[in-house]
Design a protein around this nucleic acid. Sequence first.
RNA 1: GGCGUCGUGGCCAAGCGGCAAGGCAAGGGUCUGCAAAACCCUCAUCACGGGUUCAAAUCCCGUCGACGCCUCCA
Length: 465
Amino acid sequence: MLRVYNTLARKKEEFKTLEPNLVKMYVCGVTVYSDAHIGHAMFALVFDIVRRYLTYRGYDVRLVINYTDVDDKIINRANSLGVDASELAEKYINEFRRQIEVLNILPATVNPRATQEMPQIIRMIDGLIEKGFAYPAKNGDVYFRVTKDPDYGKLSGRRIEDMQAGARNEVGEEKEHPMDFALWKASKTGEPAWDSPWGQGRPGWHIECSAMNLSHLGEQIDIHGGGNDLVFPHHENEIAQTESYTGKPFARYWMHNGMLQLQGEKMSKSIGNLVTIDEFLSRHEADALRMMILNGSYRAPLSYSDDIVDAAERGLDRLRSGLKPAQPGATSTSTNVGTELDKQAETTQQTFIDAMDDDFNSSGGLAALFELVRSINTARDAGASNAQLKPAQDTLTELTSVLGLRLHEKKSSGGDADKFIALLVDIRTEMRKEKNWGISDLIRDRLKDLGVAIEDNKDGTTWHW
RNA sequence: GGCGUCGUGGCCAAGCGGCAAGGCAAGGGUCUGCAAAACCCUCAUCACGGGUUCAAAUCCCGUCGACGCCUCCA
């Protein structure tokens, strides 16, 4: 039985979908105004793992991830760069798409954008005004009336009275209540603007997600996800808008991933303590980032450091070791090594599912895989043949791919260099036959400096990058 | 100040009432010409103080500490 931690309930709950075998899932994406950092990759990876696992468990997953392509920061950045806001957004959307692909994150079913949903957004705001949940102000803004929503604050566990002290009321805003938030913002001259019944303007941040949910998934969805920094106010406001509009409970499960931290603080654009996705990928393989996340809990904060990346990379090497072929010349001589291994593979699969069923406990799932790796390696050492190893290795491959790991040979792209390395290895083999250890070791050491590892086995030498 | 999450070996981390998973690192061993890889062995009573219970890392209360949110934020 799959159980999911629901922020709304503050506990794990049995996972039941609205419709059999279909999961309607919405995840808040990024605001595209500058280079994405690995914290953004984290949310995408977390929900990719969730999505892959749900698929593995037999669900059809309809996943919607939006791009916020119009807001103050985009406009400001575009102005300071002297470019068009929509061009800027377009650029970063394309970059993020590319990065998502490199990170082996499956594409969402739909990636809606705020600017392409204007009719729906306006219709929704209009409906909220009609029902008395929103009001247009004199300056052309439209605000949501929080006092009209009896359970406002239920997701973040806040009460309106407690929050008033910190509420911000900017100059020029004409709110009835300090906690009211903007559904529509009147545009100043030179800003991107759309026509609306309340004049030229653009949507507030929260309403776009509500509107996209409505148009792409319907009034009620199964899972709504995002970073835990979005719980308040973003998700709180989304609930308020959508439920006030439809009169129905919005998302069944609210899932939030923890923040990626650097030097003890949340990695964020505003603090400036960030590592961009491209920077990370220039130095590490894509799977390393995923591995870091899998090793922990998606809900807990993750501290980024070289040690963590290192451990993740070694862990990947270890998983890969299970996929190595049988010893050269091994024929299935061993008696019941094969059946023992098959049994272990079955156990592993069950343990893996049990762990992942418990709110996507990936570190538990990983532990099961490491045990399978050990069993495979032990069997190989005992002389198992490729045919005997295969079923267990297939299981390993299947389950790692459920987690989205590819276990590729590291930088296999030596290109032309590969041929020459093979040549050196051949020469070294001859040297070794003549017990010329000096030259043999020199070749091995020099290749190691170049990033090529050599391993001598009973019946030959293998190498890899 | 308010709301919330959390504090497990050198590091990361699972566990959610019944003798503390797993990975990395470290030490010892097998294998090897030497290595590497692989395999075997070793390595914690769970922030602190009370309480509940036959039994607590796991439940309750308190203290200390960390982080997130309360303003744009994955």
